[in-house]
Simulated assay, not measured.
Amino acid sequence: MRAVLVVNPKATTTSERSRDVLVRALRSQVDLSVRYTRRRGHATDLAREAAQEGVDLVVTLGGDGTVNEVVNGLMTADPPTIRTGGSPAERLPALATVPGGSTNVFARALGLPREWADGTSMILEGLRLGRSRTIGLGRADDRYFTFCAGFGLDAAVINRVEQARRRGRVSSPSLYFRSTLSHYFLGSHRRHPAISLERPGEPAEGELGTVIIQNTAPWTYLGDREVNPNPEASFDLGLDVMALRQLRVASTTRTVTQLLSRHPDPRGKQVLRLHDLDEFTLVSARPQAFQLDGDYLGERHKVRFTSVSGALRVIC
């Protein structure tokens, strides 16, 4: 089996020594080539090249941003002619994800342990046993995502956190909490919601303040605690949505409290939840912050979302 390991050398929870251990472990089972990312977006190019070379497996070592780039490289590759027949997922290399970031939502949603060493052991066992599953992905315009997207408040908070990290701050739950409070009270147009959700054959849902989209559960983690606006979201179904119609202090506080409870089930007059959607479009009268898989992508007036079933094989 030919495999490529795509390494983000800036991965927050691994060292050069641990990378060497991982490489030796993988080489005990596969014919491995190691490729390092050098810039943002480089993992997409490396994964696309690997798929077009006809490798059987692409392994990532990094966080959710690295996984997202690799998935987009695989999904936009032209597979070689030797990979014919079967489903689209079977014509692409399989994906294995070694957790190396600060949160690793995608790997943990697949059932992998949080630590890279334990995750590696589980992946090696999956390779020995031929264990894999096929998952669906989300797509926002022309870009794929694995577990979540955001339009509005949560994306703006991610932007603030990324700016703080570039100034040397460490990613932590407290940093996200402070960034959320700061944007909510100082940076948002919370009294004038501007987002509409449009679905084929359905009335538009208007005056939304922020929208969270999930392709699986959970949406994210605070340490070991799952944060789950849409607990029924699944890699095997369409996309789930939770939106807040207003960002008033009382209703928003109540929703956040529900999200952080032991059995989250956010409800209320200001909460819109939709399950297992094939497609929808978000439109805003003013530009909104936009993120995919925890990666801030700027501001948009409009984004079309679609569910892509049976898109990719993963080792887990």
Rank of each mutant, 00 (worst) to 15 (best):
Q270M: 06
C316S: 13
P287A: 13
G238L: 14
G126H: 03
G152S: 12
P264L: 11
L110W: 13
F290D: 03
K10P: 00
W219S: 02
S307M: 02
D224K: 10
S18V: 06
V271I: 09
S307E: 04
A233N: 07
S284F: 10
E205I: 15
L92D: 06
G310L: 05
L237G: 11
D142C: 01
L181C: 13
G268A: 07
R133M: 14
S196E: 15
V241Y: 12
L272R: 14
A109M: 13
E125D: 14
T12R: 09
R38L: 07
L46V: 05
T81V: 14
R166M: 10
G54C: 12
T255M: 14
V249R: 01
G100T: 07
L61D: 06
P203H: 04
D295L: 06
Y144W: 08
G187V: 15
D64Q: 00
T120K: 04
S171Q: 14
G111N: 11
G168W: 14
D224T: 10
S172G: 01
T257G: 00
G65T: 08
S87D: 08
A47P: 00
Y221C: 02
F145M: 04
D56G: 12
G201Q: 10
T210M: 10
G152H: 12
V21D: 13
V59G: 02
E198Y: 03
V30Q: 09
V7Q: 03
T180N: 01
D295E: 15
D293Q: 04
R2N: 05
Q163A: 14
F145H: 04
R286V: 15
P266C: 03
H183G: 02
F145P: 03
A285L: 13
G187Y: 15
L247K: 05
N159S: 13
G238T: 12
Q52C: 12
L272S: 12
V21G: 01
T306W: 03
T66S: 12
R19E: 15
G86I: 10
V4Y: 06
A47F: 08
A11Q: 08
G111T: 13
Q270C: 06
V241F: 14
E232H: 04
A289H: 15
T281Q: 14
N159L: 11
S33W: 02
P203L: 12
A50F: 08
D64K: 00
H192I: 11
A109Y: 12
G310C: 04
T252C: 05
G206P: 01
P203C: 08
R304E: 11
A140V: 07
A94E: 04
A164L: 09
S234L: 12
R27K: 12
T257K: 05
T252F: 08
G310F: 01
S33K: 09
S33T: 15
Y176A: 05
R48K: 13
E198K: 13
A140P: 11
L57H: 02
N68P: 02
A285N: 11
L292H: 06
L61A: 05
L112T: 08
Y221F: 15
T281I: 08
P231R: 01
V314W: 07
S172W: 08
Q288F: 07
E232S: 09
D118P: 00
P229T: 02
V211Q: 06
P79R: 10
G187K: 07
R165M: 15
D31L: 12
V105G: 02
R254I: 01
G100L: 10
D118Y: 02
R267K: 06
V71D: 04
N68S: 14
I135K: 01
Q291H: 10
K10Q: 11
A155R: 09
S171N: 09
L137R: 04
